[in-house]
Write a protein that binds this DNA or RNA. Sequence first.
DNA 1: TGCAAAATCATCCGAAAGGATGACGACAGC
DNA 2: GCTGTCGTCATCCTTTCGGATGATTTTGCA
Lengths: 161, 161
Amino acid sequence: MKRHVLIFGLVGGLLIATLQYTEYRFVVIEHSVELYSALVAILFASFGIWLGLRITRSRETIRETVVVREVLVPAEGPGFFAPHTAPFAPDTVRQQTLGITARELEILTQVARGFSNREIATQLFISENTVKTHCARAFDKLGAARRTQAVQRGKELGLLP
Amino acid sequence: MKRHVLIFGLVGGLLIATLQYTEYRFVVIEHSVELYSALVAILFASFGIWLGLRITRSRETIRETVVVREVLVPAEGPGFFAPHTAPFAPDTVRQQTLGITARELEILTQVARGFSNREIATQLFISENTVKTHCARAFDKLGAARRTQAVQRGKELGLLP
DNA sequence: TGCAAAATCATCCGAAAGGATGACGACAGC
DNA sequence: GCTGTCGTCATCCTTTCGGATGATTTTGCA
């Protein structure tokens, strides 16, 4: 922690040094532009540091590590069927509105499962290029630039489990 | 830490150089001093903010409180009582057993959100190389070869929302 | 204070992914 | 027949990822 103070001191010293240097030049060349700029720079630098401090001060939150211990209670009885056993049904409406074809969604699902393009190609008996094409189209329709982003979007939109 | 001073010195030198250079140009082109000063101000303000963030990041007193929260869960499985209302809490036990550090999980979370390494680096004020290192370690601990796979595993293991 | 873990950054290199574009066949609908 | 959509495949090129490895700095703890 003391190092920070030290660094602040060093930085301050550097500032003073540069100020003196530029001041000396001003005396010689008799220009006030640089002095003015240097002052503004120093002012804003300190302001920025102060701002940074203030910003991060709010970040000084007490981080609570919550350990969730799940306690099983008897089932509620009939009428409650486990949602996990039921196969996931993608939101076909949204799929249609986005214009995502069934094949594209199929490839997207495999992407979400963590498979590479080559693996997906092997699984579906198509070429890797085709997988890439489907991916590209699906990414475009989802407004995603990366496959991870596409997966995230797909889950948000209810297209992926 | 000396790096900061070094960077500051470099920036200062660059500023001096540009001062000298632009002084000549101003005389010739006769640009307004205010514009120039504003540019310098913005530059130093952002630099100061960055420096402030960097310095105070270590000051982030993390008072890590472990709170064991017992949650009643129907035997049918989790996620029936509006799981979205409760903020997600990663399975710290599993995280520990896998040896995944807090930082690695933090990076992993951003990966799951679909950000690229570069974007994550910018967000967390670290270099892209560091992000890659964290990723590689996290992937190794998760037994994943790709980031999509790591995300999938992370969700399965209750590490990611 | 000194040590071990964690975090940071870097470089090299190959593999994977992504963008752009063109093409071709199948099939449905008009 | 013509047209539009879909699925398929390809090439070229750029960007991004990932693996391996080494180094330095920071931090937490004994």
